[in-house]
């Protein structure tokens, strides 16, 4: 009885979905709206409308801003979920201070110390120049997150945690969604829609995009580092 009910319910949900899928343009067909007018609009007017030279950045943060807002929230949720799961598995969550079983070599330590500033600079460059060249908040943030992880492994967690202090850490991890909220509200005040970007003074849209890039970058880096540290915590 229960089984039949489940099957009937599934069929009732699946039917409209399948019908809707059947009405969509064929996969790869040239009649898809994405090919007929959206892509052309992006390519022809993207540079002037979106406030970014790099059309990919313009599409991700401006035209498809809602998508990216959702994505950023998902990333933050992932971090929160890891924290929740690992915090549940043990009563205390004391960080391990004992160090790795193998003492780290001074060579590795020296090379990492030598390279760390360059990696940080590269991450910053990728975030800032995401507007004109390949890169952006996600990419730069990941590079910086990887730097924090390498520092944790090589130099030790105490020193690495100085890059992300305990108190504002939650806020830093939430920087992505928060920056979208802030910029979206500013857009709403300026244009009337959430995440609306004003066209006319190009500097305003550009600085809003830059704020988003930095928010995504800081949030992404802190989320990656946060997940790694959580995994290192003693359960």
């Amino acid at each position: 009885m229960k089984r039949a009910l489940v099957i009937a319910l599934l069929a009732a949900v699946a039917m409209p979905l399948l019908l809707a899928a059947a009405r969509m343009p064929r996969f790869g067909s040239v009649e898809q709206p994405a090919y007929t007018h959206v892509a052309r609009r992006y390519l022809e007017r993207g540079a002037e409308e979106a406030g970014a030279e790099n059309i990919v950045t313009g599409v991700i943060l401006n035209y498809r801003g809602f998508d990216t807002n959702g994505e950023v929230t998902v990333i933050f949720t992932a971090c929160a979920a890891v924290a929740a799961v690992l915090a549940c598995s043990g009563e205390g969550r004391r960080p391990v201070r004992a160090g790795t079983p193998v003492a780290l070599s001074p060579v590795v330590r020296y090379v990492v110390r030598l390279l760390a500033p360059f990696i940080a600079l590269f991450a910053f460059y990728v975030v800032v120049f995401g507007e004109v060249s390949p890169g952006g908040g996600f990419q730069g943030g990941t590079v910086f997150g990887a730097l924090i992880i390498v520092t944790t492994v090589v130099v030790g967690r105490d020193e690495a945690e100085r890059l992300s202090p305990e108190r504002p850490r939650l806020w830093l991890q939430a920087a992505g969604p928060l920056s979208f909220l802030a910029v979206g509200t500013v857009g709403a005040l300026l244009t009337g829609w959430y995440l609306g970007f004003p066209h006319v003074p190009r500097a305003i849209a550009a600085s809003m995009l830059m704020a988003l890039e930095f928010g995504i970058g800081v949030g992404g880096a802190m989320v990656l580092a946060g997940i790694f540290w959580r995994l290192g915590d003693e359960a």
């Binding site: 070599s105 060579v107 590795v108 090379v111 030598l114 390279l115």
Partner: peptide, 10 residues
């Protein structure tokens, strides 16, 4: 030249 020998050493 800097990273690859370091990785091998580690």
């Amino acid at each position: 030249l800097l990273t690859s020998p370091t990785a091998g050493h580690a």
